[in-house]
Amino acid sequence: MKIAVYGQNFLEKNIPYLNQFIGYAYSNSIEIYIEKSFFDILSSFEEFKNLDFPIFSNYKELTKDFSLMFTFGGDGTILSAITLIRDSGIPIVGVNTGNLGFLATFNKDVFIQKIDQIFNKKFHLMPRSLLYLKTSITNINTNHNKFFNFALNEIVILRKETVSMITIDAYIDNEFLTSYWADGLIISTPTGSTGYSLSCGGPIISPDNHNFVITPISPHNLFSRPLIISDNQKIHLKIHSRVKYYSLSMDTRLTSLNKENELYIQKAPFYIYLLQEGKNTYYKTLREKLLWGIDQRN
């Protein structure tokens, strides 16, 4: 078996967990490939100075013969990891060493206890849909930064370098919907419905639904409310601003676009697969992370 390991940072208190993980892999003849930046972070610790693992540094090196990718961190780590996973179909095992963890559902203690079941894929594989973005003028995926134009959580349009609102004309399947006068607009997947969209009043949608959510950010019109649409529909956005540029965010990645650049958003042609303990653990995660049921009457 061949696996990939990824992280964005690492704390000394998590060394025992990683040591047990590496020991299990060694004893079971599992090949470990570590992402280069994470390898450099680990090498700064005395316990890992003599690490001798092959490394990978870009998505082209993650071939389909990898069985799993393990991410150590939180949800942000998984969002960053999908720029490496892309359409390879490699399942992600999110080990939560961070805080909230809607996506990274394996607590580090539980992860060690159930490591044998994980490697034998005894758990449920949950497909998660993504958003795909095209622009009318600039192809943001061909510049020198190779901006990854897919999003697992959300695409966000925000005003830039101005305190004034922007206006966003929205079309659904070429039919005019409305003009949002707001600080911005969030297009969210069910996965992202517990993120930025939720904090702006959007609904929570379980990940097995086939929907997108359109959520305005601080709208000036009191009748502007979040809208749920089918993920088979295509979204077209035109942005009007007093300044030349607006900000575009895709998960953890941020760039600026000229206001003449129109956006075309639709469902991506592939899924990201997350390994989780059971099919219905999403609702358990909601209860724990959002403190539902904390009222003593429950």
Rank of each mutant, 00 (worst) to 15 (best):
M1D: 13
A4I: 05
V5G: 03
Y6A: 04
G7T: 05
G7Q: 03
Q8Y: 11
F10N: 07
K13E: 15
I15M: 09
N19A: 12
I22R: 04
S29K: 15
E31W: 06
E31C: 09
Y33M: 07
I34N: 00
F38E: 01
F39I: 00
L42Y: 02
S43R: 13
F45L: 06
D52A: 12
D52M: 09
D52R: 06
F53P: 02
P54F: 08
I55E: 12
S57A: 12
S57E: 15
L62I: 06
T63R: 11
K64P: 12
L68G: 05
F70E: 04
F70N: 01
G73F: 02
G73W: 00
D75C: 05
L79R: 00
S80Y: 10
L84T: 05
P91N: 11
G94Q: 02
L100G: 00
L103A: 04
T105F: 02
F106C: 02
D109L: 10
F111A: 04
F111H: 01
F111Y: 05
I112P: 00
I112A: 06
Q113L: 13
I115D: 00
I115R: 00
K122F: 04
L125S: 14
L125T: 12
M126G: 07
L130W: 00
K134C: 07
I137D: 11
N139F: 03
N139W: 03
N141I: 02
T142V: 11
H144C: 02
K146S: 13
N149P: 10
I155F: 07
L158H: 11
K160M: 10
K160G: 04
V163E: 12
V163W: 05
V163G: 10
S164G: 11
S164A: 12
I166F: 07
I172C: 07
N174W: 10
I187Q: 01
T189W: 04
T191H: 05
T194M: 06
Y196F: 13
S199L: 12
C200K: 09
G202P: 01
I205S: 05
I205H: 02
S206N: 13
P207A: 10
D208N: 15
N209F: 15
P216L: 08
P219A: 09
P219Y: 09
H220G: 07
H220L: 12
L222G: 07
F223E: 14
S224A: 15
L227E: 09
L227G: 08
H240I: 11
K244N: 14
Y245N: 14
S249C: 15
S249D: 13
R253K: 15
L254G: 13
T255H: 07
L257R: 02
K259V: 14
I265L: 12
Q266G: 14
Q276S: 10
T281N: 15
T285I: 14
T285H: 08
G293F: 08
N298V: 12
